[in-house]
Structures are given as C-alpha cells and as structure tokens.
C-alpha cells in the first residue's frame, strides 16, 4: 500500500521538474504504478482467489478421477472427456440447454420488447405500467420456482383449476410431467421473472430513438407498422443485440427454477447443463465428469459473449 508520506515526495519531485513539462496522468512513473496497484489490490486479491484460481483448477480436475472432496485423485488423461462424449445425457442436456436459451430469448426477450413498445406508446401511465410489470423480476428465481410449481400443480394448481372452472378441463395438462412440455413450462416461469429487466432496457432504448425520424416517417405517410419496422426497430438495434446476448447468458445460467420445480425430471426431460453439473458434482460426487461439463459451459458462455460483441461492434460501425 502506498503510504501518505508519498505526498510530499511527489510534490517535491514536481517542483524540481522543468516548468514546461506539465505532469499529466499519462506519465508512467513508478509511483503511479504503486498507486494503481494499491487501488487494484483488493479487487485482484479477491478475484484471483475466488475466480481465477477455480477457473484454472477446473481444467485440472477435468483430467483426474476425483471422486469426492476427500479422496485422492489420479491423473486419467482424457478419460472424462471420453466419458462425457459417450454419455447420452450430456448431449441431451446440452441440446436442452440450447432449447432453454431459445425459449428464454423468445419468451422473455420477446415479451420485454412487446411490452416496452406498448408502454412507451402511452401518453399517460407509463410509470404505473413499467413499475407493475417489473414486479416479477424482484422475486428470486428459486422463489419463482416454488410459486410456479404451485401454479402447475396438477391437482390444486392455479392453471388446471382455472381451466376446470372455465369448463376447459380438456386443456389441462401435466405441465411438469409431460416430457415435451416440461422444459417449456419451467421456462415460462423463468421468463416471467426475467422479462422485466429486458423491458426496462428496451424502454430506455426507445427513449433514445431520434423523434425527428418519426416526424419524417409521418410526413411520408408511413403506417404504424411501417414506422415500427423502419424507424423503431433499427433505432433499437444496439439495445436489441445487447438484450439478446444478456438473455442468452442469463438463460445459460438458468438453474434455480429447474432445480426447484423438476430437479431435471421426469426421466431427464428437463435436465440442462447446470442441473447436470450439480447432480454430478454434489450428488454423484463424480467431479471429473462434472469438470468437463463446467468447461463445456464456459466455452459456450465465451462463444456467446464474443459472438455478440463482434455483432455489436459491427452494428456500431
């Protein structure tokens, strides 16, 4: 840490310097290096111990047969990678992760966009709707899982009892038991929680669309739909790419709702990569395989981020 005694030295130094050479922050002196280090040290220390070290260690574990936190692990080469490639559930969970991302982008991103357009078009009451529609985002995804598990409960849940009381019992479904529906049902819960933030971002983006463009379109006699296509959406382009990438990253991290509502079942029908990592690491104690899954997940996350940053950069120029 740089001590306070550094101050007079610096001042003295400056006094000896030729008057024309005004010091700027561009000057890479040892002292500012020390200051920078002092300012960075707390962040670096925490980040190195609790993020960087584990990232490196994950790669290490993936080459061992670690069978638990207390066991001795041996180097097994690419064994875990081979096992992962031969495990059908790995591939299924990966596929379902993509499906999950797609659902989340469409449901949460789409709902966020539509509601943002609707709310922004209002002359009065914007704040009321913006506030009310944002409420689900304040609820923890785990709690959302508890809430929606009860909504979907086949015998007492809101959804099926609602359908029954509207004489629509034939539409009642096993929302969490039907293997084709379950991932979608859980994603609806997740997206219900997620869309609020995207909506706010779109509303902010809409405020930045140049109003004169609308006036110009108005003069050209454009319909509301044409204005949306030719003015609004192009104006939102940057926010749009940002929201899509944010939604994909959030989707990739999806865990709590699946864990709480179905625990990956029935028969792996809702197993995604994060729940499978948890199952392997903390239930089956198969750390080697879990580490391979972790690496796959990181690669996915990096790919998504890089791709969208490129896209964004290209869109900006």
């Amino acid at each position: 840490m740089a001590s306070k005694s550094a101050i007079p030295e610096r001042v003295g130094e400056a006094a000896h310097a030729p008057p024309t050479a005004v010091r700027t922050e561009d000057d890479p002196t040892r002292d500012s290096y020390g200051t920078a280090f002092a300012l960075l040290a707390p962040a670096i220390a925490l980040y190195a111990v609790f993020s960087l070290l584990p990232i490196v260690a994950t790669v290490g574990i993936s080459f061992t047969n670690s069978g638990g936190f207390n066991t001795e692990a041996q180097f097994v080469g690419l064994d875990n990678y081979v096992r992962a490639s031969e495990d059908p559930i790995v591939w299924q969970s990966l596929l379902r992760t993509f499906l999950w991302l797609f659902y989340h982008v469409v449901l949460a991103g789409g709902l966020g966009l539509v509601l943002a357009l609707a709310v922004s078009s209002l002359a009065r009451g914007k704040v009321f709707f913006r506030t009310t529609l944002f409420l689900p985002h304040l609820v923890s995804l785990a709690v959302v899982g508890v809430i929606w598990a009860n909504i979907y409960d086949p015998f007492y849940g809101l959804l099926n009892t609602l359908l029954a009381s509207l004489n629509l019992s034939h539409l009642a479904q096993g929302w969490l038991s039907d293997p084709f529906l379950v991932l979608f049902s859980v994603n609806v819960a997740s997206s219900w929680q997620g869309f609020g933030l995207y909506m706010l971002l779109f509303i902010a983006g809409l405020q930045n669309v140049d109003p004169t463009l609308y006036d110009a379109a108005e003069v050209d006699g454009a319909s509301a739909w044409q204005k949306l296509i030719h003015v609004t959406l192009p104006g939102l382009r940057e926010v749009l790419t940002f929201v899509v990438s944010l939604a994909m990253i959030n989707g990739l991290k999806g865990f709590a709702t699946v864990f709480v509502m179905t625990n990956g079942g029935p028969f792996y029908a809702s197993e995604i990569i994060t729940t499978y990592i948890y199952r392997m690491a903390f239930q089956a104690q198969d750390h080697g395989l879990a580490a391979v899954l972790c690496i796959m997940m990181s690669v996915l996350a990096i790919t998504i981020t890089v791709t969208f940053n490129r896209w964004r950069a290209r869109g900006a120029t």
């Binding site: 994950t58 690491a281 990181s298």
Partner: peptide, 22 residues
Amino acid sequence: AFIFGLTIPVQAIIIPLYQVLT
C-alpha cells in the same frame, strides 16, 4: 483478465470454488 471473468458463469467453477472455501 477481469473481463474474462465476466464470461465465466459461477456454476462452471463451483467444484474448486467449493474446495477453496473449505
């Protein structure tokens, strides 16, 4: 180095993170 961390989900480092904490 910090930005790199932005892309790594916490689920993906959970095993060694757990060991570090332990």
